[in-house]
Amino acid sequence: MSATMASHDDSLVTAAFEVEQEDCFSYFDRLTDPDAWPVFRLGLRDGHEIDVVYRNLTGDMGTEYVLCRSGGKHKLDLANVGGHEFRPGLSWSELIAAATWSSAPYGVVEPDARLLLLLPAFGDADLPADATAMLTAALTSCGAGSRAGALAEWLLEDPEDWPHWRQQGDALVCDDRYSRRNPEGPTAHSPADLLEISSALRVA
């Protein structure tokens, strides 16, 4: 996660994690190696998983968040960050529920690491009062030092520019034009797929 953030504001990342810029970008280069597309798998409670795929195409790099059944079956694009973006794919409550699910049988299982991996796919104007503190704690757990709070504040700044989420029947949808979870948007999933995504990410 820190390496991904480095492409946006490396000074905040290097200060928070107390590392040299060269070391930070060395890890970023590993994540974005066009000969090796890293994939992080996050199991969910109902047999779904979110695959975080670093799409390292020359001239079209980005991070894809794919919801699918275990083993990669029935893939649904949740979000695409960087280059032809469509997001957000997660509300705050869904982000926290997916990150903190404690029974993931494989892949990335540590809740704070899961939260940081999923964070770029989230966007929600209705943040709780303790959102920054929760993110600061996650960053600290994953190696950040005393400047973790400043990085957390930057990552969550300007929430008024983020979309709102609402229930539409049994599906949770958002009002961002470029989210695939906006039923009126140009890249919208079908009603059936929107329902499956909401069911897989539903807060218990």
Rank of each mutant, 00 (worst) to 15 (best):
A36F: 01
N80R: 15
A133H: 15
T100N: 04
L90P: 05
P88R: 01
F28M: 08
E20P: 09
G43M: 01
A144G: 06
A16T: 01
H189V: 02
R177K: 15
L127T: 12
E157L: 00
G123R: 01
D51H: 08
D29V: 06
K73L: 11
E196Y: 12
A79S: 13
G72H: 10
S141Y: 12
S179R: 02
C174D: 12
A99W: 09
T136Y: 06
Y65V: 02
T100A: 01
A188L: 02
N56K: 04
V173H: 05
G83R: 07
L115H: 03
W162T: 06
W101L: 01
W101Q: 01
T4P: 03
S7L: 11
W165T: 11
H74L: 14
R69I: 06
R181N: 11
T132W: 00
T140A: 12
S7C: 06
V13K: 06
V108S: 08
F122V: 13
L172C: 05
L201W: 13
H164G: 14
R45I: 03
N182P: 13
A131E: 12
S93G: 08
L115D: 03
A188H: 07
L116C: 05
L195V: 05
N80I: 13
L155C: 14
S141K: 14
L194Y: 04
M1R: 11
G72C: 05
E153H: 08
D126W: 04
L118E: 10
D33S: 12
G71Y: 15
L117H: 14
W154F: 15
Y54D: 13
A133R: 15
A121F: 08
L67S: 13
G89I: 10
D175M: 05
V173A: 05
A150T: 13
S102F: 02
V81H: 13
